[in-house]
């Protein structure tokens, strides 16, 4: 499937079905990351059950240095 990931078109392999899969695919499972899908913020408990679908707009957010 194709999603919009952090503003860029991204093709995902078949095995990426849930948000947990997506984080695993990008090797982010152990990182501090916040997930937003189609402007809805997901809670961590939802990662395993939330199914991604074609054309989803996904944002993977984190904290960076700032004042």
């Amino acid at each position: 499937m194709n999603i919009q990931l952090n503003g860029k078109e991204q093709q995902l392999p078949k095995e990426v079905v849930t948000v947990t899969d997506l984080l695993h695919f990008f090797e982010l499972s152990n990182r501090i990351v916040i997930v937003e899908v189609n402007r809805d913020i997901l809670q961590k408990e939802q990662y395993q059950t939330h199914l991604l679908k074609d054309s989803d707009r996904v944002e993977l957010i984190h904290f960076v240095g700032g004042g």
């Binding site: 952090n6 982010l28 990351v33 960076v64």
Partner: peptide, 29 residues
């Protein structure tokens, strides 16, 4: 400590993230 909230740079080689190195019991974000 203050931080900004931004998109992850998932397409680049991952850089160390300062917040992830912090002992979060010692600091209020």
């Amino acid at each position: 400590l203050t931080f900004a909230v931004r998109r992850m740079d998932i397409f680049e080689e991952s850089q160390p993230n300062f917040l992830e190195q912090l002992d979060l019991n010692r600091y209020t974000l």
